[in-house]
Write a protein that binds this DNA or RNA. Structure first.
Lengths: 260, 260
DNA sequence: CAGTGGTCTAGACCACGCG
DNA sequence: GCGTGGTCTAGACCACTGG
């Protein structure tokens, strides 16, 4: 193989498969293996190290779990290349952006030279999950409009989002239609008298569920952000909660914090 | 075993080890297996499903990579119990907190009933990495003071942090001492005339490197947050960059976004 | 077709935790 | 000592990719 890998250390206590993973990780971090490049096949690695196949596979799996490589059946194992990231600024829901008439996602994606997309739009009315009811300050029995959708950039899914709006507010408005019109949900909320004051956004990160990995076509070893954002109208009433799951590969979040 | 698991589906295409992982995942999500509880041993699962050990181990590894279980050598595999989380509010660096005389981390941890700790404090002066120099707006050749440390709650590490302060600002001040005094770095910066205006915070998440996993004693399947926070003084000069890596198990980040 | 990774078996020996 | 998970071997057959 073109790539030169060290031999095994015969004295160390470190298990063989971890040593092999270390060698490959080093090669990736040094740049000897470039993003997109093919890692030596299992057969070649078996030959190089004179070990059984399972030992090689264990080593490769470490790298995969670390998000450094992806395996493609029948083709090989490849160093992962990072997709372009989208930067979310803390003023992304400012009124001045909304007034331009497009949803935040569309504007930002086009601005970055990508093709935005939204699919899997589903709308329903139901009792809210307890966590959401608490965010919205709803009493038992008050229902919510649920809008769920998936966002794509250049036909690749990057984010799923579910919005919850008190049914008392949304019922009969364009918020309950598939196309919410220019400026999206927030523009409609302001039109019907809920002038927005601020948003609270809560950020967690974790490994995806199977469903999330599928919906976002996540490579193994890719965590997700979970954002729960609550929109407050002037006067302090919560008027919407948006629960989103995003590929951490595709996003950098950016916030401004006050010092005073 | 007390837990009842379904049998294998003889018709599906889904590989056996994935089916087994599904059964166990269901049991965890349903609550049939509670946090801290022991998953049936490999031997028992081999008996229940009549499969080879590697098949069981592959199944268990899926759950581990998903962050649902941890294996303890010689004891068994256990459903992970989530540690208490620390919530970081977006006003956590507000001056009113700083003026109480304690560092943000100490105040918050004690307030939540935990025992705060800081260790591995290292201080040096060096040329900044390119990324940091860019954040600080430094010219070639301008050096920085580097303060690195690790934060602990109840003796468990949760976060590593590295601060970079232009050497021109920090040299000869208490910022270059191991103990920065009441209110920490930011209080000292304000005392010497750099009144803080705001912070920019950039949030990413990814799987940890080996070193990070070790320093934070991360369970397999736990991603990390990487925060890079730049402090700006009134007038717009960047006076500090803080690069932190945090266990996503231990933190929820919370931000307020403007709507105007 | 050859080469690749995906799944699975049936063993082996070791290291750790606990009684 | 026994049960646990950790590492490793040496095979097998399958499914996918590409020339």
């Amino acid at each position: 193989m073109a790539l030169t890998l060290p031999g095994l250390d015969p004295v160390t206590d470190r298990p063989v498969f971890k040593q092999i993973a270390d060698h490959l990780r080093d090669a990736i971090e040094r740049g000897s293996l470039q993003p997109g490049e093919k890692v030596p096949s299992e057969a070649k690695l078996m030959g190089h190290y004179s070990v059984a196949r399972m030992t090689i596979r264990n080593a490769l799996q470490i790298l995969q779990a670390e998000g450094l490589t992806v395996a493609e059946h029948g083709r090989g194992v490849f160093v992962r290349s990072r997709p372009p990231v989208r930067r979310l600024a803390s003023d992304r829901f400012a009124r001045r952006h909304r007034e331009q008439g497009k949803a935040a996602f569309i504007v930002e994606t086009e601005g970055a030279g990508g093709k935005p997309g939204v699919d899997s739009i589903q709308i329903s009315e139901a009792d809210p999950p307890a966590e959401i009811a608490a965010c919205l300050g709803l009493r038992e029995g008050e229902r919510v409009l649920i809008r769920s959708r998936r966002y794509l950039i250049n036909d690749h899914p990057v984010e799923t989002a579910v919005s919850y709006i008190p049914a008392a507010i949304a019922r009969g408005t364009r918020i309950a239609e598939p196309d919410t019109g220019p400026g999206g949900i927030y523009a409609r909320l302001e039109e019907i008298g809920h002038r927005l004051d601020h948003f609270d956004e809560e950020v967690k990160a974790r490994m995806p569920t199977r469903e999330e990995a599928k919906a976002l076509r996540l490579a193994p070893g890719t965590p997700v952000f979970r954002l729960v954002r609550t929109a407050y109208a002037e006067g302090g009433t919560a008027v919407e909660v948006c629960d989103t799951v995003m590929s951490t590969d595709a996003y950098v979040l950016s916030y401004q914090l006050p010092a005073r």
